[in-house]
Design a protein around this nucleic acid. Structure first.
Lengths: 209, 209
DNA sequence: TAGATTGTTAATCGATTAACAATC
DNA sequence: TAGATTGTTAATCGATTAACAATC
């Protein structure tokens, strides 16, 4: 049984993974904690602590073997095990997410899209078919889907979330700019990209002051 | 001079803003800290502490006036003051960001897009013209742009970041799935959405275990 | 007034950082 | 061996939570 990691540590791990991949792909055999720390602007002791927390270890004087460390992170973060998901909303954001190539590497496999626009039904985006939302519940059951991504403009997002929950979905990744509410056993991540901008913009102000 | 907020507090403020807006638009005059806490799954004392940190106060027994509190957050987070930005990349993600309507409310105004594809140059997306990247530096100066959003597939992102820095940009919001590196006086937010998925997916695993 | 909620001080908890020992 | 880097224990720091006072 994995011991539970702290939130901050968990959030740093995918960032380590990215850096380690970059080094590995560049053909570098080892990476040192100070290098990871510099790239991500965290403390180097922090990096080693986090690595210790996932039971990996490096070699004193040499560093961490990029290939091994990468594999360890993939195993720990369960990246190789593709998780099937449905995507609600074939608007511009939905299409962008459907076409996004970075997800496979991180264990996300978007299987199909759903929309209400009759002009879109039947089209294929990046080899994923667009179905009418009325087929959603049935297909969730058929294909044993646990994750749904919501990418519609807002007002309808809560309704779609409720539909998803009633269809047996276990986790919702919400890109609509509202805070959706679902029963507490359902996992929700409200991806508020505008809020992320606000944080960036506050940092700019700080730099000026 | 604003006293500096902690990172966690700063990250919660836009979430409070969203909830307060929702209540205000629903016509509710007051909101209580316990309600905000419930909606965002944080501690209610935390909410009051955060509110105190931005020098706002409510009324005992009644709560926080939604209209006033909303205005206070807008002022504190500087949401009313539109920040001009350029967007590099008119691919599907770039278009989705250009069309995204939620940004205005959060103080972001995307002025124009840049790309290299000759078929796209001159087109308009949500009233924003697409220019050739060769015009970037000149237009940054002309329009005194401080922020650039990078939405291209990856390999080229570092080059574009460097171009942006050389053009005098002060902050970069990077959607490309690489960790871009720039001089330390430049503010960078690497928006790694795949990483956000990993965190969601780990939470699902925890729920099972 | 009584009760409910805000506001604040004190206590706890956990994450980060510092110091240093272990190791190749 | 000397030096560099990992790994770990201890100290610090800051965020969260708990307790309770203030207030309408």
């Amino acid at each position: 049984m994995k011991k539970k990691l702290s939130g901050p540590t968990l959030r740093r791990l995918p960032r380590y993974y990215r850096i380690v991949c970059e080094h590995f792909e560049r053909g570098e055999e080892y990476i040192r904690s100070v290098e990871i720390a510099r790239r991500l602007d965290v403390d180097e002791t922090q990096v080693r602590k986090d690595i210790a927390a996932i039971n990996y270890s490096g070699k004193p004087k040499i560093g961490f073997n990029t290939k091994e460390f990468k594999a360890h992170l993939e195993s720990f973060l369960d990246l190789s095990n593709a998780k099937k998901a449905f995507l609600i909303g074939a608007g511009s954001l939905g299409l962008a997410l459907a076409k996004y190539t970075g997800f496979n590497k991180y264990g996300l496999d978007i299987i199909a899209l759903f929309d209400v626009d009759p002009h879109k039904i039947g089209l294929k985006i990046a080899e994923k078919e667009i179905f009418h939302i009325s087929e959603f519940t049935e297909k969730v059951c058929e294909q044993d889907i646990k994750i749904v991504i919501i990418a519609i403009p807002g007002e309808e997002a809560q309704k779609m979330a409720t539909l998803a929950v009633n269809s047996g979905i276990k986790a919702i990744w919400n890109f609509a700019p509202i805070n959706i509410e679902v029963p507490k056993e359902i996992i929700v991540a409200n991806q508020d990209i505008a809020a992320d901008f606000v944080i960036l913009s506050m940092k700019i102000d700080e730099n000026k002051g």
